[in-house]
């Protein structure tokens, strides 16, 4: 408590007066910064490990005789299922608490973003709870993804036809 007060006083000593105009820059000067290095290392390790698990699943399917393209799709589905179960068990949010982008960006983060609200809104029933709220975090991904993918594919298709 005392330490933080002293640190604010120290960092804010260049400001003679704090008012509505300079408040934003004052707060920026005195607030604690994200631990960039630690966050980035954790994101790298966790994100990398999730992809390694994905790769192991791909190799497993390839070993079973599935084509590599199909195996890639299967691996993503398997990761989705694993992440869904970990979310249900209350493990995934603890990973995300440390790993940040490392657990958000892989497909497992997408699964977590769908399953977490589904569990949370279970109390409001299966139709108005789970049904309407399931995609309230991940919905933007589907909506924007499908729309922009069609536009991008259209451009690419036109180039393919006429160039």
């Amino acid at each position: 408590m005392k330490e933080r007060e002293d640190s604010v006083k120290e960092k804010g000593r260049d400001f003679n007066d704090v008012n509505m105009q300079n408040y934003k820059s004052y707060v920026f000067a005195v607030m604690p910064k994200s631990k960039h290095f630690k966050n980035i290392i954790l994101a790298f390790v966790v994100g990398g490990l999730i992809c390694v698990i994905g790769q192991l699943i791909i190799e497993f399917f390839v070993f079973l005789g599935v084509s590599r393209v199909d195996a890639t799709g299967h691996a993503s589905s398997c990761l989705i299922v694993i992440a869904a179960i970990l979310t249900g068990l209350g493990v995934y949010d603890k990973i995300g608490r440390f790993a940040g982008a490392g657990s958000t960006i892989p497909i497992t983060g997408f699964s977590n973003a769908v399953v977490a609200p589904a569990i949370e809104y279970r109390c409001e029933g299966l139709i108005y709870g789970v049904g309407t709220r399931m995609f309230f975090v991940a919905g933007p991904v589907i909506v924007n993804g499908v729309s922009i993918a069609i536009v991008v594919a259209l451009v690419r298709w036109l180039f393919f036809l006429y160039c």
Binding site: M31, P32, K33, S34, K35, N39, T87, G88, G90, Y92, D93, K94, I95, G96, R97, F98, A99, G100, A101, S103, T104, G109, N112, A113, V115, A116, P117, I119, E120, Y121, V137
Partner: peptide
């Protein structure tokens, strides 16, 4: 948490502030 931020089970990095 549910009303103002995210569902409980969503894995997010909390802001340092």
């Amino acid at each position: 948490e549910r009303q103002y931020r995210y569902p409980l089970e969503l894995g997010v990095l909390r802001s340092p502030v």
